[in-house]
Amino acid sequence: MAPEPTAEPRVQNVQLRGLPKVSLHDHLDGGLRPATIIELAEGTEIGLPASEPEPLGIWFAEQADSGSLVEYLKTFEITVGVMQTREALTRVAREYVEDLAADGVVYGEVRWAPEQHLDGGLSLEEAVEAVQAGIEQGEDAAEDAGRSIRVSQILSAMRQGDRVREIAELAVAFRQDGVVAFDIAGPEDGFPPSAHRAAFDYLAGEFLPVTVHAGEAAGVGSIRSALLDARALRLGHGLAIARDLDVVSREGEEVLVEFGDMARWVRDREIPLELAPSSNMQTGAAAHWGDQIEDHPFDLLYQLGFCVTVNTDNRLMSRTSLTRELAILSTAFGYELDDIEQFQLNAAAATFLPVEQREELIDLITEGFARKGRRR
C-alpha cells in the first residue's frame, strides 16, 4: 500500500481537495460507503466480515491488497451482492456522485457492469435507468450543497462472459440518456479484446467511444489488442506500455530511453492512460518495476510525454480518493501545482464529452487552479 498522506494534503500550500478535478476511471461497485453496504445487506443472505463501517472498510482494503488482480476482484462479490435492486443501485449512484463532489471532482465518468446486477429481477435497461436516476439525484444534491458536478456512465461488459455484444448494444441504446462510452472489465489475462472483435466492430460502426482495461494484469499484447481490435481511445490502466520502453542509460536525472513502436504510437497519438497508483500497487500491476510507489512507472511515462491521468479505480478497496492519489504522487515524485493541473487538463481533454464541453471543462480547471493557486 502507498503511504498515507496528511488529512488535508497540500501542494505548495494549496489544499488539493479544493482544486477542480476530473475522474475517468472509477468503478461504481468499488466506491460504496461501508455504512451503506451494512444497511443494504440487512435482510439478505450476504454475510459481512464486519458489522461496523470502519472495520469493514479496513477489511476491504486488506483483502484487496493481495498483489493479484484475480484476488482483488473477489472483494466485489459483496458490493455487487448488495446492488441488486433499483433502490440499491439508485442509492449507491447518488452517494457516489455526492462523494466525488465532496472531493472536488467537477466531472466524472463512472463505469459499471449492468449484467452483474440482474439477480433481483431487473432488466438491463432498468438497471441503467436506476443508476442514471441516482446520478441525477447526486448532481442535484451536490448543487444544493454549493458544488457543481456532472457524471456520465461508461457501461462495462465482463470480458470472460458471453454478453459483450449485448452490453455494447445497450450502451448505444442509452447514448442519449447518460451513457458516453463502452468498456470491458474483469480478469484481463486470457481474455483479450480480440475475443470480442465483432462487438467492437459494431461499436465502431455506431461511432461509440471505447476504453478498455488493458496493460494492468497482462502485458503489451493486451494493449496491442485494445488498440487494434477494440479501437480503444483510452487505455484502462495501460501501465504495461512502459514495458515497450528500453531504458538505455541513466546519468543522474537524465534517462535515455528507446521507444518500441507501440509505445511511440501511444505517446505520439496522445492516447490517455487511466493510471490508478494505489490500485496498481495492490493488484501487482506495477510489480514489474518494484513494490514501492516510487517504483511505479507513472513518473517515467509523464516525463516522456505520455498523456497520463490520475484515477482511483476503486475508492473502497484502496481506501482512497482522487485527492489522496494526487497527494501520494506529489510526495513520491515531488510534483508541484503545475503538474497537478496538467494531470487534470489531460483528463479533461480525454473525457468522452463533445469537444465544446471538453473545452468548457478545460477552462473551468484552468480558472479554478489560477484562483486557488493565488490563495497561499
Rank of each mutant, 00 (worst) to 15 (best):
T366H: 08
V266A: 08
G221W: 02
A93W: 10
S68H: 02
V22M: 08
V179H: 02
R175M: 11
L227E: 00
L364W: 07
M83E: 11
R147G: 00
G190V: 05
G30M: 04
R375W: 09
T366N: 12
E77Q: 13
G104W: 05
R374D: 11
D162R: 10
M158C: 03
T309N: 07
L89I: 03
G43Y: 01
T44C: 03
S51H: 13
R269G: 00
E356L: 07
A350I: 08
A168D: 01
A348Y: 02
N280Y: 06
F343A: 05
K372C: 13
E258W: 00
H27Y: 02
E39A: 14
R315N: 06
A370R: 14
R243T: 12
Q15W: 00
A240S: 13
Q160R: 06
Q176F: 06
Q132W: 11
V310L: 12
T320L: 09
I184S: 09
P192I: 09
R94Q: 14
I223W: 01
M317E: 14
R111Y: 12
L228F: 11
R86M: 02
Y107A: 13
R319A: 14
D144M: 10
D244I: 05
L275E: 10
L73G: 02
L170R: 08
L316Q: 05
G108P: 10
I362E: 14
F333Y: 15
